[in-house]
Design a protein around this nucleic acid. Sequence first.
DNA 1: CCCTCCGAAGAAAACGATTTATAGAACTTC
DNA 2: GAAGTTCTATAAATCGTTTTCTTCGGAGGG
Lengths: 367, 367
Amino acid sequence: MQVHQVSGTAHRPGTTPRTAREGSDPSKATIVDVARAAGVSTATVSRVLNDHPKVGSQLKARVLQAIKELGYRPSRVARSLRTRRNRVWALIISDIRTGPFFADLVRGVEDVAHGAGYSLFLCNTDEDPAKERAYMELALAENVGGLVLTPSSERTDLSPLINARTPFVLADRSLPTAHADTVIVDNVAGAYQAVSHLLAGGFQRIACITGPLQTTTGERRYAGYGKALVEAGHEVDESLVRVADFREAGGLQAMRQLLSGSDPPDALFVTNHLMAIGALQAIDEAGLAIPSDIAVVSFDDPPWSTLLRPPLSAVAQPAYDVGVESARLLLSRLEGYSGVARTVTLSPTLVVRGSSVPVPRATLGRR
Amino acid sequence: MQVHQVSGTAHRPGTTPRTAREGSDPSKATIVDVARAAGVSTATVSRVLNDHPKVGSQLKARVLQAIKELGYRPSRVARSLRTRRNRVWALIISDIRTGPFFADLVRGVEDVAHGAGYSLFLCNTDEDPAKERAYMELALAENVGGLVLTPSSERTDLSPLINARTPFVLADRSLPTAHADTVIVDNVAGAYQAVSHLLAGGFQRIACITGPLQTTTGERRYAGYGKALVEAGHEVDESLVRVADFREAGGLQAMRQLLSGSDPPDALFVTNHLMAIGALQAIDEAGLAIPSDIAVVSFDDPPWSTLLRPPLSAVAQPAYDVGVESARLLLSRLEGYSGVARTVTLSPTLVVRGSSVPVPRATLGRR
DNA sequence: CCCTCCGAAGAAAACGATTTATAGAACTTC
DNA sequence: GAAGTTCTATAAATCGTTTTCTTCGGAGGG
């Protein structure tokens, strides 16, 4: 679809330049207009804009005056073209819907970026590799200074970024292939804590609903689940494990399956909060009580977890800090660091609430 | 803080041009490199890129070949500078944290934008007028094709956008001052439905926790609350109304205050889901039962509302459609529509669940 | 008094694309 | 075969900045 150009400024190469127009149309003033109004050259205006030292104070005043009068706003497009640099970052995230986690992450990146004089463009990929690729290309074509991204899958191709020598940082998810600066949460440790806690509570048949195993988060959290079981002398019972899609519908379906078996689980570890919603729904459908019939621990600690009865135990992630650390790594690259790739690992913390503490015998009897 | 430039490409004006380097550094190839490789002029390459009709098929093939070989990616910066147009929109939202509402809105805008060949940059203002202003300026300086924004307050100044003649649409919140294309949810109707429903249930002292009255949403939802009361022959009791900040903490505090009075409310209408979380927390602290002691209806219908006991009644907003309609309005401007400002109003729907249905006498007696 | 040096301001060349005017080549048509 | 007519492809101008390099005027030194 082609946009029809309203060609108010079109003119033949040989005719009078468009800067002939005066006064009106304030925001479209260019550096040439400013230079003319101040009676100086564009070079001088440019120097004032970037406050270079060697510019006379009275000239500077005149230029500033002209800038104000014309409402002049330098074109970042032209600047970016000339300097081959742009004080903007792109932050490519896989799904803004994924609750407070990405929101806090964004906030963390933004705070650091702003502090360092960068602005942030967000791009939402919906976990779609094609959109992810498109946004990477867009960011490069727009000449961003750097980018932070949460790769949608293990097969995400970073080569465009590498070829373009544009610095980037992976946040929340690592890629085994390319060694790049990465910030992750210690998913294994988080899952390990959660499952160990359930084991300590005496639960025997602990189920796990995890996300796609191609994602770091899905795979690592499952790994932590397995590690806790094995260390405690149990073995992983595949019939208690379901791989879903990190969404509500997936959690619902997985839990229904788990509960329909002949020997259903007495506890559940679910690796994100959306799937937790679905799973809790399924538990409710089945008329089971938490934690007496089945205990539950979730990954992600959404604000509503305390509203449930019983309140939901969960592994809280330092999302804001993931953002902050990602931004810091990116910043260090932009400031010239060109050494080996670094990985920052942050620890999640288990928050124990009612959904996972075993019910005392006396109460249990009442059931 | 100044980034040190690694000046690999710097050269004196008189010396050999940088395009002398061959082969390596694939992604930094320019249109000149492609032209050279294909043995044509840059004009021809440009025509191939924008598939203009008048270009010989074999030349076209040679050019495409060269593009592929060099891994050439046209610079959107240069293109945007030259054409004074950019197929990118900015979507400035006030707070990504505000649950699924903005997330769905973003998705709606994005779907339409992509369909029309536009990409989307998101900007998050945290309801901060300064950040909002800065992002508006950034979007203009980056020469975006258009923007969708959710103004942070009534005093948001749109004049930069108007002066720059960059088309824009207001989403979710309208501004009384400037008449601009706007898409809003019928907040009055939503609140009216919710409160009428409570009145029909026989509740007498219906409290309201709303957001800042400078925001359309805060003010209109409060207006709907008042309208329902007045139409039913009641009058608005100011002591039952609290203005908070649309966040959890605000809801918590407001509800604590409401419950501490001598004659507490028997029902609550709360105008967004974050404040609902806080309010529910306060109700729980006070040891009150829902709905027998106090009934609750919330604006926004988050996915977890069915998990509560009793499940939470709520006014569901067509967030995705707000996004879609906003994008459509913007698109029509970009396609040349230059008529009067339009306002699209979408209706929310009340979802009645257990938190607001009066308890039968028999059960009530048991309390 | 002349030469050198220094600093501030300007002229002009980039950056990488699009687009207009123009130059050729190929084809009619007489 | 020459003139007129299409077509294609190229040259060159242009978008709005930054950044050299150059220039110009004045200050300082011998």
